[in-house]
Design a protein around this nucleic acid. Sequence first.
RNA 1: GCGAAAGUGGCGGAAUUGGUAGACGCGCAGGACUUAGGAUCCUGUGGGGAAACCCGUGCGGGUUCGAGUCCCGCCUUUCGCACCA
Length: 815
Amino acid sequence: MTLTSHHIPAESSVPYDPATVEHKWQERWQAQRASSPDLDNAERRFYQLMMFPYPSAEGLHIGNLFAFTGNDIYGRFQRLQGHTVFEPIGFDAFGIHSENYALKVGIHPMELIPRNIENFRRQLRRAGLMVDWSRELSTTDPRYYKWTQWIFVRLLENGLAYRKKGAVNWCPECKTVLANEQVIAGECERHPGVKVEQRFLEQWFFRITDYAHRLLGDLDWLDWSESTKSAQRNWIGRSEGAEVLFDVPGGERIAVFTTRPDTIFGATYMVLAPEHPLVATVTPAERRAMVREYVERSTKKDLVSRKVGEREKTGVFTGAFAVNPATGAHVPIWIADYVLMEYGTGAIMAVPGHDERDFDFARQHDLPIVRVVAGPGESADTPIDGITHHDDGTLVNSGAFDGLSVQEGTRRIVEWLAERGAARTVVNYRLHDWCISRQRYWGPPIPVIYCDECGPQPVPDKDLPVVLPFIADFRPDDTGVSPLARHEEWYRVACPKCGTLGRRETDVSDTFLDSSWYFLRYPSTEFDDRPFDVARTKRWLPVDQYIGGNEHAVLHLLYSRFITMVLQELGYVEFEEPFKKFRAHGHIIREGAKMSKTKGNVVNPDQYIEEWGADAFRTYLMFLGPFEEGGDFRDRSISGVKRFLDRLWASVHEADASAAPEDAVMRKLHQTIKKVGEDIPRLSYNTAIAAMMEYMNVLRASERTPRRAEVEPLVQLVSPFAPHIAEELWERLGHRRSVFDSGWPTYDPSLVVRDTVEIAVQVNGKLRGNVTVSREATQDEVLAAALATPAIAKFVTGEPKKVVYVPGRLINIVV
RNA sequence: GCGAAAGUGGCGGAAUUGGUAGACGCGCAGGACUUAGGAUCCUGUGGGGAAACCCGUGCGGGUUCGAGUCCCGCCUUUCGCACCA
């Protein structure tokens, strides 16, 4: 379709040309700084935040624009409600995405990224977002990452950053260490099919596990999408249980973590993770070679087969025994890689009778299996055949504890063991400390200098930022060091403490550190001597509403909360939760299928904006499904929304200013004002648009000429969705100021309720007709009216046994 | 396996606390205007039936005057986590 084909009847004057209108208003908004609020004098502030994008070379895709538009509509609505709205934008431009793409096309990221950002700016501007471009930021800007480094230094000074050598996830394709969160089922998140290997490197970690309790607790009151909260709860993975000590004759004690201490009488063997420090100590000399061989084999295994791939349970007997503190029995100590060093204590008491994994292992290695819990209909002697972990059973074969419920048994057994110093109640979290080291080039250098005399020293604040140098050979290799480690001229520096020659840390930090605080920076982008201004931060944070994808439910959102908690604890901010409200937007599929490069159904929003205009495109994106659920983008369906805007345009131009508005139309208008005003805050944009379309149908029913008073408020209602056409029409209606400063129309409650209502009449629950009665009609009046209708009365055979009347809705006559 | 969400016309989707299922839009059909229509406007559009009516929200039960909505038991799909003791 071409623009010239939109014929508006000649008498309606100017045809609607989206390109002209949109260009005009985008220019004007920019010239008037219409979207840059005065941050220091805002009375009723509203900080509407959208997750900043990674500026890919492909440009914005429909999914990005769906999210941005939904965010923008909320922001514009708040503005119409009289708030000073701050809707900032930035670019998350560091990281492996950008670097890998740069490597692929052979262009340096320092050249590539500005180019991509420029393209994103162009696309975002075309979409007509109410974004404050004067406060745009990029994580790759030294003025920004100076403060990312500053945050690292604060954590280091306060003991929250530490160095640790340990098994890390290594992607042979990215040639770098990955965070646990970036490993999907043992494979690299960026390279599906590529197995992540274990490597042992010195890394920087943040003590996020110290905050597990608070991170979990706050979820109870945060106003966030339930799905996001549940993903975080899962990730933090709290389990209550007990730590139980098993003595090894000869002096050692092995601590195990269990959530089922009630089953201890069934612990017939124990298992250490291959990496467990006591493996070597406990193993008698004659079995050391064999054990060492097993340990080497399993630690070399990549994490795929270790964690998900091979489910058959391998292991080796150490030759040593430990004493079960409940039974006093000597139980064999095994080593097996189904026990993970990172969780609990890296050792378990194995209860094959009531744990599926232990059961499999015991069967394979002929270890005794004992029933200690009897479920409903089972006794102490019921044979065990597999999955047998009852939460609702009673204890059996458990000495003095026989007959107790699982809950009671758990409590009593822990008490009993605790008296003898063999157990204590503990809470365990699945969450690991956050590894922030990356052996790559495209990130902020970690601001540390190593000195042979003084050890690792933070770079003093006055020397920040540690600027990432331009180097041509930024390709990573598999030596485990960053490309920066090949540049002695860069990493050779004096120790800030003693002045002797030291060496810079050559790793860069995780992108998630960049994005863990950007929302604090936005209101303070003009300050170079502080990360965030005290007064500005106080006025503008925490964020009022945050919109983003649920793919960041655990990574970015958890890290941002953690960093904010730390900054609060250190006295830099006054709140511990950065986002009061978070809503996850849905995802767009296209013509019933997921958009993907391989399917070739990814489309560039530019083409739609050119063909239909940004207003129609925005409105269609919001119309195709609930914002929090996403929807199916179907090319043909845009025409419906375009038609709606065409009719809006025509209605304003045709509107009769002299004729009085019609009552019925005005009632519908006020109902629509109410509906749209209620739908937008709950992100029900699709139904808000449907309501406006419905009103349009009333407005233009049977080719009637709309009255000006009927049309004018509709322009305001439409404005958050289709801002350009709304501004243009508002101006054509004779207004001097922007429609966004016109205030949200109010509705007259008396016009929303009707004088007469249609009551559905049911007989025995089946709909048999309608009667129209006054709003205040009593049950008897409605019943009489219903029985006076022959089509209804014929179903009422005899005296009604019961009548149910729901005023204003229906009446049900039971015969 | 665990956790979360969801199954409604040909399609995308409405139905805020149990109260007229299918709003709104696409598509389709018929008509008007027109040299023309892939523009615009009007009318119709869940299925069956000539009609009266009957049947209909993944499946099977239940509660209720009344169930898409609540309860019990299944099936399917999507997403997240996955040997977490």
